[in-house]
């Protein structure tokens, strides 16, 4: 990053290569759409480049990158929800669920062995469960799971206190567990509509997420 700060283009490319997969993974699961995740990842890298001179070497680059990514994603999700309010259909969500259904259809066909069907089905259930969490719970969960970030780093990346992060993650994991419980215990596959997923847990997850704005 120090080379990037000095304006080294090759170092910037290396940085993109090194972090693009990780960034895309978090963003794709956050917004539920590959194309949008790529746009957000590019916007994040652009902001990294623009802000390179402000980077402090003592700060962890990874935390700094995901701080920017969180801001970019939050702005995008906020404007997306604003568009939804005025009646524009949410194409991203439509795409994701149709992708999921395609996967499930493929899984159910004889083209895949039983082990893979189970795996594909479980992955789809987890994806839907994640989808039903609020954006902030989802982000905290993804940073913890995929990036292995500490509460301190997540707090920094999401601009909140460590205690609020602890509560946010706690709620996220408890909600996730409640949503997945019927599937884990009885193998009951929830319907593809996220709202029907462990109804109580799913709706409370979204509500709690909004309430956490006040906690931080």
């Amino acid at each position: 990053m120090l080379q990037v700060r000095a304006g080294d283009a090759a170092a910037f490319e290396e940085l993109v290569v090194r972090y693009q997969g990780r960034l895309l993974t978090v963003l794709e699961h956050l917004v539920g759409n590959r194309e949008q995740a790529e746009d957000l990842a590019q916007e994040t890298f652009l902001r990294v480049f623009k802000a390179r001179e402000r980077y402090q070497p003592e700060a962890k680059f990874c935390t700094w990158l995901f701080t920017i990514a969180n801001n970019v994603a939050s702005n995008s999700l906020r404007s997306r929800s604003r568009r939804k309010e005025v009646g524009v259909p949410d194409k991203a969500n439509t795409d994701t669920s149709s992708f999921g259904l395609d996967q499930m259809a493929l899984a159910a066909s004889s083209l895949m062995p039983a082990r893979l069907i189970d795996k594909a089905e479980a992955a789809e259930v987890v994806r839907q469960a994640l989808e039903s969490l609020g954006e902030r719970q989802k982000m905290a969960l993804l940073l913890s799971k995929f990036e292995g970030m500490s509460y301190q780093d997540i707090a920094e990346a999401m601009d909140m206190s460590v205690q609020a992060t602890k509560s946010l993650l706690s709620r996220a994991r408890v909600n996730l567990q409640r949503i997945l419980a019927p599937y884990m215990e009885e193998g009951t596959r929830p319907a593809s509509d996220g709202v029907e997923l462990g109804t109580e847990a799913a709706t409370s997850a979204a509500g709690q997420d909004a309430g956490l704005e006040d906690e931080s």
Binding site: G21, R34, E38, L176
Partner: peptide
């Protein structure tokens, strides 16, 4: 139970650019 649901997140795909 909590650990099990946490482990299930491993099933989510990693994006390959």
């Amino acid at each position: 139970h909590m650990q099990k649901s946490w482990d299930m997140l491993d099933l989510l795909a990693r994006s390959e650019p």
